[in-house]
């Protein structure tokens, strides 16, 4: 479903964020993207979302070269990809329900679809009883669940989570990982960029390690690490 072919990214200021990365992700994968800060994890997800263009190589999503999409096709690409942020990025003036509904509103979803899917998503992440609350009234873990509900309410093929546990305590992090595994079991492909070595080591999922922009490891049932 996702293919990176010899992808390099050099930012305008000359920073080489990715160097000749080639990797493939199949439908249903749960992939950990590990590596120290500045390794290029976020850059890799930005190329997928076409927030940045590769300097060299090709990024293919669902058979299409992401760099070659017409401007009007970019929103359609992004509708197939859900994104969960480290800092949640919920809209503070909207309730949990409204934040999740927002994802459908902005793509022109009908009232019926919103009324059906938002409660389903909130149910799945376990926030059904907090839907009328504002983000500031929620704990970090709950805010992140709301973020996940917003990312999956449109039923994306791929869920990208960039250090989703970065701002959470260990117990809450684990609860979140169980939730992501559940979502993965329901068929959504997941890319999770993370520093949380204990989680990576315990789950024994596929691990892709980046270091200084280079892919140093790609293991089917890997553990945390990015040494040579």
């Amino acid at each position: 479903m996702v293919h990176f072919y010899h992808v390099s990214k050099v930012y305008q200021n000359g920073v080489k964020a990715l160097k000749d990365v080639t990797m493939h992700i199949s439908k249903g994968d749960f992939l950990f993207l590990v590596g120290p800060s500045g390794a290029g994890k976020t850059t890799l997800t930005k190329l997928l979302l076409r927030e940045e263009l590769p300097t060299k190589g090709q990024v293919i999503f669902c058979g299409k070269n992401v760099a070659r999409l017409k401007p009007q096709e970019i929103p359609l690409l992004r509708r197939k990809i859900g994104v969960v942020f480290q800092d949640f990025r919920l809209l503070p003036k909207k309730t949990v329900y409204e934040n999740v509904a927002f994802a459908l509103e902005v793509i022109g979803g009908s009232g019926q679809i919103i009324k059906k899917r938002v409660p389903e998503a909130l149910e799945l992440v376990g926030l059904a009883d907090k839907q009328k609350m504002f983000p500031s009234q929620l704990s970090g873990g709950e805010q992140q669940r709301a973020g996940i509900a917003r990312a999956i309410v449109n039923r994306p093929l791929l869920l990208i989570t960039d250090e989703p546990t970065g701002n959470l305590d260990p117990k809450t992090s684990w609860e979140l990982i169980y939730l992501l595994q559940e979502i993965n079991r329901l068929g959504t492909t997941i890319i999770m960029a993370t520093h949380a070595w204990d989680i990576v080591n315990t789950l024994k999922k596929r691990v892709v390690a980046l270091s200084g922009g280079q892919m140093v490891r790609d293991e089917k049932r890997g553990v945390y690490g990015y040494g040579g």
Binding site: R78, R89, L91, F102, V106, G108
Partner: peptide
């Protein structure tokens, strides 16, 4: 601006 960046990630069209 925050809302707009979220809208873009969520796949809102430019016209929207």
């Amino acid at each position: 601006r925050q809302e707009i960046s979220i809208m873009k990630v969520l796949g809102a069209t430019n016209w929207f």
